[in-house]
Design a protein around this nucleic acid. Structure first.
Length: 748
DNA sequence: TAACTGGGCGCC
DNA sequence: AGGGCGCCCAGTTA
């Protein structure tokens, strides 16, 4: 028997007690009883659902009897079922989300969109109805039962709920689909008039049942397509990912409470202090500054940067500030407030006053052409402005924005964390992981996203060496946000990074000689293991070659040029086009010089583009252990007018392949950890960040005790690269962490 | 008030 | 026209 299954829950925050309140299944008998569902009451005061144990038994038996189970986003259902003590048998699972990504990596992968794409069926009406009903109920509850626990931003039990979010799942009403049933029940209990109509009671179950029914037929159709296109082996292999993601999510990442709290307090103090200083500088200019929150800039601040125009009514208190920083002309008009009103028009004139304030030159953003105040633009001001209050202002503001960004991150970690039992002062964060969440093969992570934890450390400004009183001789004014995380007291972390993974893949695939030398002869001239040096030799040959025999010779003598080369290299890696490459390098024709100097890479890029323009997609390098003939298909991006976005095919192929390597490594390492756990060694995979994997081990008595295990995982990771066709050496470096994530010790 | 867009910034 | 993501804020619009 083949079944599909769908769960509706009271939210996404499983670590905070979220529960399923509806389970629906559909089998492939096509009979009248194909669809079954169980809907449970949710206590409106606690949001705990009342799940009869006989229902749990029935559902477990049904799952047990099934040969195959179709799920849309199996990781979510696995976690929901785990909350009612049902273990999902992963070997039976087929996931329509995984299939949707395989069949069309950059299309929408929600059930509604995929039903339209693959079945030609529109099931949106069910969702729209349940949305309408739920929102109406939420409004009623807000007035009549204000003490009911409906989903709201700021509720500590539902940290992922956001007022306005792009993700549907995070929207408040999405968490309250149990509400219509509860509200109707309450009204009935109180003998109060029933509202709405009979469809209200069933809106949620009808929606859920439509989901499970369509998941079944969608799943069957998608499996057919995957077989037809020859990706069956790859699909089977990909099905390991949601299971691993589920394990990682359940385990989570530990954070150090005391440190996080003290850094938050420290940053808050600094932000408040620099904020006050900024206001006072503006005051010297006679300008009433209103600072924006976080790293953002508001119109008031823009007025201070570029000059402001203010209009005041001569008769009333009306004032209007006009942004003239973008060149808007100012028309003098009559006051809109006290002119032309009901009685007789007064026509009070407005008085316009202009101020120059900081009078910065506008730095234009490259995307929209509008004025930009990002950190690049700020950097421009920092280097061009002369000493004075203006420069002070920019310096302070740059700092404040950075601190505020870090602050919001840390505050969100605190919102999501839960105490670690038995480890006072330690907390665990369970970010949601989506192995199918990007346009290529990277994983997405949210609530919170631990893939963007800042690594940047702040230098001590008063530092004059060893005996510095400000920093204790460390040279650091503040540790990075990364220091908020670390292993629990009886644990240790091993952080394994693929070295230059995305750079190695194309180089070894096409055999570009100079770059292979970089990787194979890291301690020899002329490149000394640095691909920056290769670019330097191409773009600044006259500067580079005389110094090529000395390690870091070019870097030391031409630091500014070296920095430009480095940025150019990064821009190139992420797919920058000709104009941007030339601009970053500061050399006209830099792009061509690179192309001529690295002809094999250029050929590979061209062939990726040609393939994408012909077929619309590229394939990652095949994996001989999965399917030696096929790689994973990744659709290229297209411009608005339908052409292939020329920068994406190569980039997608390379980062897709890199992630394939990391994904296969992750699966192997997770399996190894599971084996160790079965043997009594409690090892876990805690996190992945695109080309790195973080392992959480029990603390050894010495750093060496668990080293062999770490080396075994390193070897497993490295094996993934050699499984590619062609085989690619993918060395892994390993850090050992006992205190905080910012203080790793490089082992190899 | 909610939904949406744009800009900014963190990571790889 | 510099790839991928998530999150936050400001400002506009329905």
């Amino acid at each position: 028997m083949i079944i599909s299954l769908d769960t509706e829950t009271t939210g996404c925050d499983f670590a905070h007690g979220v529960m399923p309140f509806l389970v629906t299944t559909c089998d492939n008998s096509r009979g009248p009883d194909a669809i079954k569902f169980w809907e449970w009451d949710v206590d409106p005061l606690t949001r705990v659902s009342d799940v009869p144990s006989e229902d749990v038994v029935t559902i477990a038996e049904l799952i047990d009897a099934a040969d195959k189970i179709f799920l849309q986003g199996s990781k979510f259902d696995a976690r929901a079922l785990a909350a009612i003590n049902i273990q999902l048998p992963w070997d039976k699972v087929s996931d329509t989300l995984a299939m949707g990504h395989l069949l069309a990596s950059n299309h929408r992968h929600d059930l509604t969109a995929m039903c339209i794409e693959y079945l030609g069926v529109d099931i949106e009406s069910y969702e729209l109805h349940v949305k309408e009903v739920t929102r109406a109920c939420r409004d009623m509850v807000k007035h009549e039962y204000p003490y009911w626990k409906i989903a709201q931003e700021g509720d500590p039990d539902m940290p992922s709920v956001k007022k306005s979010s792009k993700r549907d799942e995070d929207k408040p009403w999405k968490n309250d689909m149990w509400l219509p049933r509860a509200l109707l029940k309450q009204k009935h209990l109180e003998n109060r008039p029933i509202f709405g109509d009979t469809t209200w009671t069933t809106a949620c179950s009808k929606y859920a049942n439509a989901d499970s029914e369509h998941t079944l037929y969608l799943g069957l159709e998608m499996e057919r397509l995957i077989r037809e296109r020859g990706y069956w082996k790859i699909y089977q292999h990909r099905l390991d990912l949601p299971r691993v993601a589920c394990e990682m999510e359940c385990y989570g990442v530990t954070a150090i409470g005391e440190y996080t709290e003290s850094v938050i307090a420290d940053y808050q103090y600094h932000v408040a202090e620099s904020g006050a200083e900024l206001v006072s500088i503006a005051q010297e200019f006679g300008y009433e500054l209103e600072l924006a929150e976080g790293a953002s800039i508001n119109d008031n601040m823009r007025g201070f940067f570029y000059g402001s125009v203010e209009q005041r009514c001569t008769a009333c208190k009306y004032t209007k500030r006009i942004k003239h920083w973008n060149g808007d002309s100012v028309r003098e008009v009559v006051c809109p407030k006290c002119s032309g009103r009901k009685r007789k028009p007064v026509n009070s004139p407005l008085v316009t006053s202009r101020r120059d304030n900081l009078k910065l030159n506008v730095v234009y953003g490259h995307k929209t052409g509008s004025a930009s105040l990002d950190k690049d633009a700020m950097q421009e001001y920092l280097t061009t402005l002369q000493e004075g209050p203006g420069l002070d202002f920019i310096r302070l503001l740059t700092d404040k924005r950075k601190h505020e960004t870090d602050l919001t991150y840390m505050q969100s970690y605190r919102r999501f964390w839960v105490p670690v039992p038995g480890a006072i002062g330690y907390y665990r964060i369970h970010p949601s992981l989506n192995p199918f969440g990007t346009d290529h093969l990277r994983w997405a992570s949210n609530s919170p996203n631990l893939q963007n934890v800042s690594t940047q450390e702040e230098k001590c400004e008063e530092c004059d060496g060893e005996g510095c009183p400000a920093c204790g001789g460390t040279g650091k004014a503040r540790l990075s946000v990364r220091a908020c995380f670390g292993p629990a007291p009886d644990r240790e972390w091993w952080d394994a990074d693929f070295r230059n993974l995305e750079k190695r893949i194309p180089v070894f695939e096409c055999g570009e000689k100079a770059l292979i030398e970089v990787f194979e002869k890291p301690n020899e001239p002329p490149y000394w293991g640095s691909d920056h040096n290769v670019l330097a030799s191409l773009i600044f040959p006259d500067d580079y070659w005389p110094l090529a025999e000395v390690r870091d010779g070019f870097k030391k003598k031409h630091l500014q040029k070296y920095k430009k080369i480095k940025n150019t290299n990064f821009a190139k890696q992420y797919g920058a086009g000709k104009r941007k490459v030339d601009a970053t390098a500061g050399v006209v024709g830099a792009y061509e010089k690179i192309e001529r100097g690295l002809p094999e890479i250029a050929k590979l890029q061209a062939s990726c583009l040609a393939k994408a323009e012909w077929t619309g997609w590229v394939e990652t390098l095949p994996d001989r252990t999965v399917d030696p003939d096929r790689g994973y298909p990744v659709l290229a991006s297209r411009t608005e007018d339908g052409r292939i976005l020329s920068t994406t095919p190569f980039n997608y192929k390379v980062s897709g392949t890199a992630c394939w390597v990391k994904n296969t490594a992750l699966v192997c390492c997770a399996a190894r950890c599971a084996q160790w756990r079965a043997e009594g060694f409690d090892a876990h995979v805690a996190l992945e960040v695109h080309d790195s994997i973080l392992f959480d081990f029990p603390r050894g008595r010495t750093p060496e005790e668990n080293l062999p295990r770490a080396m075994e995982l390193k070897a497993l990771m490295e094996q993934s690269g050699t499984n590619l066709v062609p085989s690619i050496p993918t060395p892994v470096s390993v850090e050992y962490i006992t205190e905080s994530w910012a203080k790793g010790v490089t082992i190899c």
